[in-house]
């Protein structure tokens, strides 16, 4: 590195100091940092004290709306309808592309939401899985459902199968360590069994943000049991502290934090009465507020 590559050339493995953060904040807001620099900046931002973060948020908002950097022309009146038309067209296009998958998912979710008994659901899902899973995955399912129908692993596999995210199910099925750990985990197993078999419970899939990290989980909601939430996750580092946020059409909820054990972690969270509001998104974030698991759109 040349000598005159000054303070901006802070090595990427070191966090930026406050002054450097402030100086780079306007470049970040204008999209002028490259991929590596932006990631470095983001890491430093998350590690900064809350007061500095707030200062940067204010500064960036001012830069983003700075009249000095914007044209002095108003948009035409018909731009709104053009924008709405373009977004609608993009949505339609995506819906056409996703239709086969969405149809399968929608049926599964509807079946899951208000089933009367666990056995009905097991049977229904077993049948649908037989149709739609790849041969290898189905054979695993058969072995589990026939041989271990009442076991915890079967129940978990069944619960996972209710979700629309097929990849998530397959990952758990393939994750022998997680399955074995779950089966032998004396803390998690009894509670999880009761959660899975609870009347009217909802299940939300939480795939890892990084698909290669082998992280995933499920959030269970028991509206008929005081609105309690229970999280099950695997693949996160041991002794990590994480927080769960849920956003519904009626507002957002901090469901509290949990600390991971080794292997699979299961933990009760706070209760919330959603009162019929739709759940829009769920996030699990680490101590720096960086999401590690995030629900796909619900």
């Amino acid at each position: 590195m040349r000598e005159d590559e000054d303070k901006f050339m802070n090595p990427l493995n070191e966090l930026l100091r406050r002054e450097e953060l402030i100086e780079q904040a306007s470049l970040d807001a204008l999209g002028l940092l490259d991929e590596f620099e932006a990631a470095h900046y983001a890491r430093s931002f998350h590690a900064a004290p809350a007061s500095v973060q707030e200062e940067i948020r204010r500064l960036q908002a001012a830069v983003a709306t700075d009249a000095a950097l914007l044209a002095d022309e108003e948009p035409p009146a018909d731009l709104r309808s053009k924008v709405m038309g373009s977004v609608r067209e993009a949505m339609d296009e995506e819906a056409r592309e996703l239709k086969p998958i969405a149809t399968i998912g929608a049926k599964s979710v509807r079946a899951a939401v208000r089933a009367e008994t666990a056995s009905e659901l097991i049977e229904r899902e077993r049948l649908s899985l037989t149709v739609r899973r790849a041969e290898r995955v189905v054979s695993v399912w058969r072995a589990v459902s026939v041989g271990l129908a009442a076991s915890l692993v079967a129940a978990v596999v069944w619960a996972m199968a209710l979700d629309t995210n097929v990849q998530m199910v397959e990952r758990l099925l393939q994750n022998e360590v997680a399955a074995k750990d779950l089966e032998s985990n004396k803390d998690v197993a009894p509670t999880l069994r009761s959660v899975i078999l609870a009347q009217g419970r909802f299940v939300y899939s939480l795939p890892g943000v990084d698909p290669k990290a082998g992280v995933g989980g499920q959030l269970f909601h028991l509206p008929e049991d005081g609105g309690k939430f229970y999280i099950l996750c695997f693949g996160l580092p041991t002794n990590g502290e994480y927080r769960v946020r849920l956003m519904s059409s009626s507002g957002s909820y901090d469901l509290g934090s949990f600390v991971t054990g080794s292997g699979v972690t299961g933990c009760w969270l706070a209760s919330a009465a959603l009162d019929g509001a739709s759940v829009l998104r769920i996030e699990v974030v680490d101590r720096n507020g960086v999401p590690v698991m995030k629900s796909s759109m619900l």
Partner: peptide, 29 residues
Amino acid sequence: ASQEIFVRLWKTADRFDPRRARLVTWVML
């Protein structure tokens, strides 16, 4: 470009993190 940007905003909306930036900053980014 404005139309394309709003399509992009719809596609990336789930990545918005209010702890990281105000919404106006995110939109303009």
